[in-house]
C-alpha cells in the first residue's frame, strides 16, 4: 500500500532525479495523470504473465506464431 504522503512526492522527486524542471501547472497536470494512471499501472504490475511465451520474431501485421 502506498504511503499517500510519500506518493505525493513521487512526481517532483522523480523529475528532480532526472534533472527535469516543471512549473506549478505542469506539476498539477502530472499529479492528475499520476492519479489516473497509477492504480491501473499497479494492477498491470500485479498481472501474472509468467506463462506468456515471448514472441521472439514479433510481426504485428500477422498473428503470433503458435508456441
Amino acid at each position: 500500500m502506498e504511503d499517500p504522503n510519500r506518493a505525493d512526492d513521487f512526481v517532483p522527486a522523480g523529475l528532480a532525479s532526472l534533472g527535469i524542471d516543471a512549473d506549478e501547472v505542469e506539476l498539477a497536470v502530472m499529479g492528475a495523470a499520476k492519479d489516473l494512471f497509477w492504480p491501473p499501472i499497479l494492477d498491470l504490475l500485479a498481472l501474472d504473465t509468467s506463462a506468456v511465451a515471448p514472441e521472439r520474431q514479433q510481426d504485428l501485421s500477422r498473428p503470433p506464431e503458435q508456441p
Partner: peptide, 29 residues
C-alpha cells in the same frame, strides 16, 4: 501546459510496467 506536463510525466513511467505492457500485447494477440 497539458502537453508539457504529459511529456514530462512520460519520463516517470515505470520501466517494469512498460515491459509488462509488451507481455500483455503478446497475451492479447
Amino acid at each position: 501546459p497539458i502537453a508539457r506536463g504529459l511529456l514530462k510525466f512520460r519520463m516517470l513511467l515505470p520501466a517494469a510496467a512498460s515491459v509488462k505492457a509488451y507481455r500483455v500485447r503478446t497475451l492479447m494477440r
